[in-house]
């Protein structure tokens, strides 16, 4: 890597790979903070293209049309922030060990350093938050990071990161979200995430 500028412009990415990055970005957006009115309206226009994932997208669109921003924000707070403990704890370490900030987080930080991923200034949440991990996957697919060894992250690298830090627990998280008592809109988000990760895992197997 001769200069920082070289990796500012991501390399060309095949269409279906670009779409994967978009789904990860969508999940990251929805799990980082609740959607505002404009974003809900856009989500309401989604139309799936068949399959379990397409059906999940259709349900997300329907849920978006049936929701108002204030209600979704309240739902988000109850699910993920909640006074006296949220309904769901969207961190890898928690899912993998039962506790926050355990060894899986330390391992993630090592992987991030190697892949050239840094946490934004001012962010205080541990890096193994589901939204952060989805964003990292999107960035890896889009070639937006600059790995230590100067190489690009291919499917093998994506798979290694996915298996270790995402696939190992996020499917369970999304399934939990799908059945959360307080969830309405976010049940549909859970279904989109769960069905997408299932396709991801299978697709990595195909490429192996």
């Amino acid at each position: 890597m001769s200069s920082a500028v070289d990796h500012i412009v991501p390399p060309a990415v095949a269409e279906e790979e670009l779409f994967r990055a978009q789904v990860y970005a969508l999940l990251a957006r929805l799990l980082a903070r609740p959607p505002d009115a404009a974003f809900l309206t856009a989500l309401g226009g989604l139309a799936g293209e068949g399959g379990e994932f397409g059906a999940a997208l259709d349900r997300l669109a329907e849920a978006a049309r049936d929701s108002d921003p204030a209600a979704v924000e309240e739902e988000f707070t109850t699910l993920f922030i909640g006074v006296g403990g949220s309904e769901r704890t969207p961190y890898g370490s928690f899912y993998l060990t039962g506790f926050l900030n355990e060894k899986p987080l330390a391992e993630l930080r090592v992987a991030m350093a190697r892949l050239g991923i840094a946490r934004a200034d001012g962010v205080t949440e541990p890096e193994d938050h589901i939204a952060a991990l989805c964003e990292m996957m999107a960035g890896l697919i889009g070639g937006e990071f600059a790995p230590e060894d100067g190489d690009t992250v291919g499917l093998d690298g994506q798979r290694a990161f996915f298996d270790r830090h995402v696939g190992s627990w996020a499917g369970r998280f999304f399934a939990d979200l799908e059945t959360s008592p307080s969830a309405r809109f976010y049940r549909a988000v859970g279904a989109v995430g769960r069905s997408f990760l299932a396709v991801e895992a299978r697709a990595f197997d195909l490429a192996a």
Binding site: I8, Q22, L26, A32, G48, E49, A120, A132, A146, V199
Partner: peptide, 29 residues
Amino acid sequence: AGLGVGALGAVAAGVTATGGTAEAAPAET
């Protein structure tokens, strides 16, 4: 599996545009 390019439509632009989502970028080297 229904993961066709374009299925996200305008939403895709929304999540990749600045301000709509968290922003990913290379780490400082």
